[in-house]
């Protein structure tokens, strides 16, 4: 009962913030409301007993990606507070497409019989995730770090000023 109330509050925060992100006319305001959206999703992860993923979500999404987005917005706007038209001419088609996809997905989710398992998650997922990364998923770990390295070097090279 308490979990359902927490879920409703968190998803309300997330959905309202997401609507502001996709619908606001002011680009800085929509970037700043990514933060409550990501924090709501952090709460959802905690409800799902994935506390390490929740901590990483706050650290990376709300703390680094949002800052990066805000940096690029502040460095590319033509002056402060100048208002541009933010949506293109595909708004009705976009709404129909997104709405159709959402309706289709929800219909699929509601009518599929999911095989519910009866086990339970370990109490301290962080150490279990670490062990799994180092034993079963070591290739995934190494390849991800290589992708990070390539993305880092690529971003620096692309964004450098040409001399």
């Amino acid at each position: 009962m308490g979990q359902l109330a927490a879920f409703i509050i968190l998803s309300a925060i997330t959905l309202v913030a997401t609507v502001v992100v996709v619908g606001s006319g002011n680009i800085v305001r929509s970037a700043l409301s990514l933060v409550p959206a990501f924090l709501g999703i952090t709460g959802i992860y905690i409800l799902l007993q994935a506390e390490f993923v929740a901590g990483i979500q706050v650290l990376i999404y709300a703390g680094a990606i949002t800052v990066l987005i805000l940096f690029v917005i502040m460095l590319t706007e033509h002056g402060t507070g100048v208002r541009f038209r933010q949506v293109n001419e595909q708004v009705p088609l976009g709404m129909i497409a997104a709405g159709a996809l959402g309706a289709f997905l929800i219909a699929t989710f509601l009518t599929t019989p999911w095989p519910m398992a009866t086990g339970s998650l370990p109490p301290y997922t962080a150490s279990q995730i670490g062990t799994t990364f180092m034993t079963n998923m070591i290739l995934v770990f190494e390849v991800t770090s290589l992708v990070l390295l390539v993305a880092l070097i690529g971003a620096i090279v692309i964004a450098r000023r040409e001399r």
């Binding site: 997401t18 609507v19 996709v22 997104a98 996809l101 959402g102 997905l105 989710f109």
Partner: peptide
């Protein structure tokens, strides 16, 4: 599903 369709929009 709702978040995904909002992101798609």
């Amino acid at each position: 599903a709702m978040l995904f369709s909002l992101g798609l929009y």
